[in-house]
């Protein structure tokens, strides 16, 4: 089954007097259980593609399918429901709600989903331990380092076991040891639960965990190589 399918996506941003082609006729298909890294220099289009797949940004043209359902024509409410139930997000920055503790941030999506308090509390504690934040559950984002905040965001993205996880530079603020731990966790989820990962990154260490690497340049896919080739 196809987890993600993008057909001929185009997206142009206007920057001052200049039009920037963030996506230039991009087509890509990602199978369920895929572990794909989108690699590109800054402005290459990887974040725009990630946002289009996550229903956060609408392409100017083309079609986006998630779990074989077309999403580029959905309403705001339908997109919110899709993101809530099927997609986990890790953003490059500003990932957490400042007024909630680490545990509450992790619980947030489950709470919106309507998961009972006891169940979500248990899951949140387990996942925070898995990402190495045991003992920091009651800290607020302002009292945590950038790396710790990023790990909370990762924990929140995967805690409800979404079918698709979209991560934008998830290891940007992490040291190498934590990065490895996080990527191993991603791979474990990918291997055991067939969770599909699409990760936008510059980091070669992250790419080494990928089953497939898609390189982009100026909004176009210029290379698409599988794990064997890596």
């Amino acid at each position: 089954m196809t987890a993600v399918r993008c057909v001929d996506l185009c997206k142009t941003y206007r920057q001052g007097e200049e039009d920037i082609k963030a996506l230039d006729h991009v087509s890509i298909e990602i199978e369920e259980g895929g572990f794909v890294c989108l690699s590109a220099p800054s402005g290459g289009g990887k974040t725009t593609l990630l946002n289009a797949i996550g229903g956060l940004d609408k392409p100017d043209s083309g079609e986006v399918y998630v779990a074989e359902r077309r999403i580029d024509n959905l309403s705001k409410g339908e997109l919110a429901e899709l993101r809530l139930r099927q997609i986990g997000f890790v953003f490059q920055a500003f990932n957490l709600i400042p007024v909630l503790t680490a545990r509450e941030n992790v619980e947030f999506v489950m709470q919106v989903q309507g998961v009972p308090a006891a169940e979500r509390g248990q899951k949140a504690l387990e996942i925070l331990e898995e990402v190495g934040l045991k003992g920091l559950e009651d800290r607020r984002p302002a009292d945590m380092s950038g790396g710790q905040q990023q790990r909370v965001a990762v924990a929140r993205a995967i805690v409800s076991r979404p079918a698709l996880v979209l991560a934008d530079e998830p290891t940007a603020n992490l040291d190498s040891k934590t990065s490895d731990g996080l990527m191993e966790l991603f791979r474990e989820l990918n291997d055991h639960h067939s969770t599909t990962f699409v990760i936008a990154t510059h980091d070669k260490r992250v790419m080494s965990y990928a089953k497939r690497i898609v390189r982009m340049l100026d909004g176009r896919i210029v290379e698409d190589i599988s794990q064997d080739a890596v």
Binding site: G54, L56, K76, G77, A80, E81, R83, L84, R85, F89, F91, F94, N95, L96, I97, F108, V109, V112, Q113, R156
Partner: peptide
């Protein structure tokens, strides 16, 4: 962020 995570408008 909350909208991105699935909260509705």
């Amino acid at each position: 962020l909350m909208l991105a995570l699935g909260m509705r408008p």
